[in-house]
Design a protein around this nucleic acid. Structure first.
Lengths: 185, 185
DNA sequence: GTCTATACTTGGATAGAC
DNA sequence: GTCTATCCAAGTATAGAC
């Protein structure tokens, strides 16, 4: 990995851990093992670095979701696989956490990939639910758009609860709760 | 309201909007219309101000929830009232947002009221669900602890989705989704 | 209690040498 | 491409006058 990539990767880590306002250029340089001049040679500054970093994390998140959702099985099985997959719960969601950052939401170009990622994720989950509805696994009248938003919200909110408690249990409980309702059909 | 209270109140507003790492003593002073010396006379610094501010917001959140949950009606009706109540969705949750702040979670004394608030909220919702289960409104086998976590997670995650989209719709969808499942019993 | 002055650190970036 | 020097604003706090 070259210096440029290391800088982006370090930015991703720090954005995940400390957010945009909490991440300084100096911290990025130290994490990447790069000097001041090196960073400003490759990037115009913190913002440009963040743009690349956020985009990469966004792509990765959607790819990871797709890996669970495209497996064989019923709609509920695939959603279960997605919700139950191994996660670093206490670190939170690298994309969702950015929504709490004033430096991100105030900047349309930085917010855009965050918005797009969560919107696409909901759309993809709605597709899976649609398939379940089509096969009769799920009831015909189900509002799949709403339920897809609920599923993503349970994840994002589960992270919030786990971080507050400094323990993963509330996350697991929230997931169990929604799955018990979904498997009741 | 005296100067001391104004400082706490300003801190609450700024913590809500910008988080702990994003809020400077100077910003607090300006928002409160108080001078430097005044602030440091009443408080040892930003951290002490935050301790008081977070505690007040926590108390207020629990009181607001209780206002909806103690109304007459079935369990699902009361939870519906709670979820559907008027909210400043795009501002997010003044307590939940703090879980994304490294300055809060890294400090046990600052994290404690956040943890306690969300834990109590889940416990209170579980009580309401227990009552519904006792009256036969909800099924006997229901895991009320898990479902309470789900309900709070939908709220917290709904805020995340709404802030990402810069629009309240995803929040409303997430709430609709969980309520449609709850009213299916 | 509040004000102003002062101090030191960090944030964020530019300039020019190598 | 990377390094060091430099710069100015902001963050966070202390000191002492009023």
């Amino acid at each position: 990995m070259d210096t440029r990539d290391q800088l982006i990767d370090s930015t991703r880590e720090l954005l995940w851990e400390r957010g945009y306002v909490g991440t300084s250029p100096k911290a990025i340089q130290q994490h990447a093992g790069a000097g001041q001049g090196s960073m400003y040679h490759h990037f115009s500054g913190k913002r440009e670095l963040a743009l690349e970093a956020v985009q990469r994390s966004a792509d990765e998140l959607l790819a990871a979701a797709e890996a669970q959702l495209r497996t064989p099985g019923t709609a509920v099985e695939r959603i279960t696989a997605y919700l139950r997959r191994e996660r670093e719960v206490l670190r939170g969601c690298p994309i969702g956490r950015l929504t709490q950052d004033p430096g991100i939401v105030a900047d349309p170009e930085l917010r855009a990939p965050v918005d797009e990622t969560l919107t696409r994720l909901r759309a993809r989950l709605a597709e899976v639910l649609d398939e379940g509805r089509a096969t009769g696994e799920l009831p015909a009248g189900l509002d799949t758009t709403a339920l897809a938003a609920t599923v993503v919200a349970v994840l994002q909110g589960g992270y919030v609860l786990a971080r507050a408690a400094n323990a993963p249990e509330p996350f697991d409980q929230a997931v169990s709760g929604i799955l018990s309702l979904l498997t009741a059909f």
